[in-house]
Design a binder for these strands. Sequence first.
DNA 1: GCTGCATGATTCTCATGTTAATCAATGAGA
DNA 2: TCTCATTGATTAACATGAGAATCATGCAGC
Lengths: 176, 176
Amino acid sequence: MRNMPDKTDSDAKQPPEFDSGKTKSKRPLRDRRRSLAIGLLRAREAVMSHFRPILAAHDVTEQQWRVIRVLSEAGQLDATELADKASILAPSLTRMIRSLEERGFITKHKDEADGRRVLLQITPAGEAIVEDVMPESLKVYADIGVRFGAERVDQLLDMLEELAALKLDNGSVGDE
Amino acid sequence: MRNMPDKTDSDAKQPPEFDSGKTKSKRPLRDRRRSLAIGLLRAREAVMSHFRPILAAHDVTEQQWRVIRVLSEAGQLDATELADKASILAPSLTRMIRSLEERGFITKHKDEADGRRVLLQITPAGEAIVEDVMPESLKVYADIGVRFGAERVDQLLDMLEELAALKLDNGSVGDE
DNA sequence: GCTGCATGATTCTCATGTTAATCAATGAGA
DNA sequence: TCTCATTGATTAACATGAGAATCATGCAGC
């Protein structure tokens, strides 16, 4: 099911001037320019729509959940490591730390050795959230695995990882 | 100083009870529960990182670009259609319309037939942005196509579309 | 013509993304 | 030891995501 003549004419018409100049397309291949960015966005949105109710039921956002889960699995981490593992930006994490600490889900204290670092750790209350959410989360993924195909999910994950690792050179735009 | 992808063991340890139940994997198949949500997020982030410089150079955000491009391709649209095609929430679109109109990229006027609808249209200034950005955008996607493989991109897009179309029943959380 | 409901858009509030600037602590070198 | 560049974290400012509430219009039914 490679390049079927895609019956989804999501956006059939577009100004011809974008095509006329460089008509080097050997096959339809629905415009790729829109695909990846939007495709990833929509797919992610679809997946998350199944998790949000679960998280909302426990009054945590998706990002808060990522932080809690990472801390639960990795133990004590400094802010930079945590931000990286949870795919959250440092400024966001700073804000989240404040609220998560106030809610008693994590603890924060300075590193004795390096005064710049902030060490984060999960609390029992935080672990409790994980205990509650994780089973439901696994259920959703299992459901996806059944409907989408377990190997295909794996295959998709491989491609996503590889795509994320791609470092293209933007040699024509980075001239500040 | 972004977040360096430090290859330090991303996540090596995790409770075994999540794996023991369904060990039908012919290979490790790294834990699936974390994968999709995070994988899609990281992949998208990676892709967008190549576009942001282009968009920033023209002083438009990623979302503004989506709105402008959709309007450029589809012509006149009402807010709901536009929000759907651009994958943007209605409240966000309302805010964006204000600023985009102030900047002269789009025009807004009420529908004569239905006073509730707001019709949006792109302006020549908006088209100019498209003319500027689109070529560079295509260049980036072409680059990705070369490095990742054109058919594989197509294949990935197919899976993303299919995943986005998956409507799982969350029979245990949506009780109303 | 009025009522009640549905729909489209807006507003509000809070949380996060994104970038730039700033603060604090560390460490190398004069 | 003092200076300065670096690093880790925070703050600020703006834009968007997400959900709930509100407003305005349209419409069916009486």
